[in-house]
Design a protein around this nucleic acid. Sequence first.
DNA 1: TAGTGGTCTAGACCACTGG
DNA 2: CAGTGGTCTAGACCACTAT
Lengths: 257, 257
Amino acid sequence: MTASDASPPQPASRRIAQALRSAIERGELSAGDRLPSERALAEEYGAARNTAREAIRLLAEQGLVTAKHGRGVFVREPQRLFRFGSDRYSLRNRETGLTPFRLEASRQGKTARIDVLSIRRAVPPPGIAERLKVSADEESVVHRENHYFADDEPVQIVSTYLRWAEAQGTALTQPKTGPHGIYGRLEELGHTMTRVRDEISARMPTPEEARLLELPPGVPVLEVLHTSLDQDSEPFEVSRYVHRADLTGLLYELPVE
Amino acid sequence: MTASDASPPQPASRRIAQALRSAIERGELSAGDRLPSERALAEEYGAARNTAREAIRLLAEQGLVTAKHGRGVFVREPQRLFRFGSDRYSLRNRETGLTPFRLEASRQGKTARIDVLSIRRAVPPPGIAERLKVSADEESVVHRENHYFADDEPVQIVSTYLRWAEAQGTALTQPKTGPHGIYGRLEELGHTMTRVRDEISARMPTPEEARLLELPPGVPVLEVLHTSLDQDSEPFEVSRYVHRADLTGLLYELPVE
DNA sequence: TAGTGGTCTAGACCACTGG
DNA sequence: CAGTGGTCTAGACCACTAT
C-alpha cells in the first residue's frame, strides 16, 4: 500500500503477469526455467495467492508458460515444428515409401508411430458428404481414423473418408493398405490425383481433442480439411487433419495463376 | 450433497462446465443466448461464485462463450469466415482492381476499411531478412503496416517488407501505390510473380495483438508468412499476416506434382 | 515430509450495462 | 437503480512431486 500508489489503474494480476512476461523477454527467465511459486509471488507482490495464480493463468493462456502439478510453473520450450503442406500428397513422397509424417519425424530424430484407431462404414458428417459428393443420409463412406505420434507424443489426428461403393471389398477397408498406401489403391480404382484443395482454420481444442493430443492449456489446433481431386476434377478422398499448433507448421508452395 | 454421491471425482467447476456444454450442444442454449449469471449458477449447484466463474472460464477458453461486462455471458455466434488462399495473389484478382479483402467483405455485405498505419525504412526481423534475402544488420527494407477492418471490426494485421534498394523513391514508399497496388509497381521493377510460398502457423495472440484485433478470450490467431518469388525464383516481397482465427479460413487449391 | 500446483469457500468492492 | 461480470482477499484441503 505504500509504494506505488500514484498510477496503476492496472489490476494487480496483470501487473504481476507483465513483470513475469518482461523477465521472460529480457532473458532473466529462459525456456525451461521455473517461475517463483504462486505463494512466493503472492508474498513478493503483497497479494493473495489467487491473484498471483490469476497472473500465471494469463501467461498460460498465451502459451508462454506451463504448470506442472506438484513441480512448478515453467517457461515453455519452443518446439521444433513438424512441417506439412503442398508436398504432403506429392508423388515424390509416395515413391520413397516414406509418408510425410515419417519423413518429418526422422528429420527430427524422433520415432514415428501411427495407430489405426478404427476403420468403419459410416454416415459422413455434412461437411464431408458435401465435399466428397456423397449422400449424407446413409452409410455412404468408409471412415478411417488414425492417430500420429512422435516419440509417443501425440501430434495429429486424421480422419480419412472414402466412398463406400468404391472401397468395399478392397484393401481400403483394411489396416494395411499396401504399396503407396490408400493413394496407391485409389489410383488402381482409376483416380489419379491431379489437384488438392486444403481448407485451413484454427481454433481452441474441444476437451476431447485436448485429451487425445495431450494439449497444454493455451495451445490451439490447426484443422485442415483436405480434398483430393482426380483427372476429371471429381473428389475421391476427403481427410480432416487436427494438428497440435505448437508442433505443426503448414507450408504451401504453389505457382501463381 | 444428497443426489449424486457415488461417482464424481470430477471437480465441481468441470461438472458445471460440462452441464452448460451439454445444454449448448442439445440446443437448450443456442448462439446468442445468455447463460445464467455466475451468482445464479453458484446457487443452483451449491458452489461458491468463484467455482461457477471457473466453469465459465473453461468454456470461454474453448471459445464456446464470451463474457460481456455488466451484461452477462453469451453463447458465441458462429461467424461467417473470410476466406483467403491461393487466389490471394492471383492476377485475376488484380485485374478487377478489387483486393481479395475488399472482395470478401463485399461478399458478406460488409464495408471494408484498410488503414495504412506506417511506412518506414527499417531493420528487418531475422525471419524476414532470411526469406527476402537481405541483410538483417541494416535498414535494408521498407516496412508497410496495414490494418484491415470489416464494418469497423478489425480482421487482420499485415506487415509487408520490400527491399529498400528497390522501393526507395518509388510509390512503394507511399500510401497510394497506384494501379494494381504494390504488385503493379514491383512488376514495373522487373519482378513477375511466378510462385508464392505461404508458411502457416497458429498460436494464441500476444496481448498487443489481442488489443489490436479486439480478440475475445479463447480465440487464436492464424499467422501466415508469405513470400513472393519472381521469374528467377528470387524472393522480392515478404508479408506477415496475422488473422483473427474465428473470422478467417484459408483455402489452398493447387496442382499435384 | 515439505513444497508445489489444483480446487474451493465466503465473503468484499469495483466497473459496466440496462431500464 | 439493480444486476451483471471483474478483481481481490485470506483462509482451507487435496493431489502430485521430490527428497
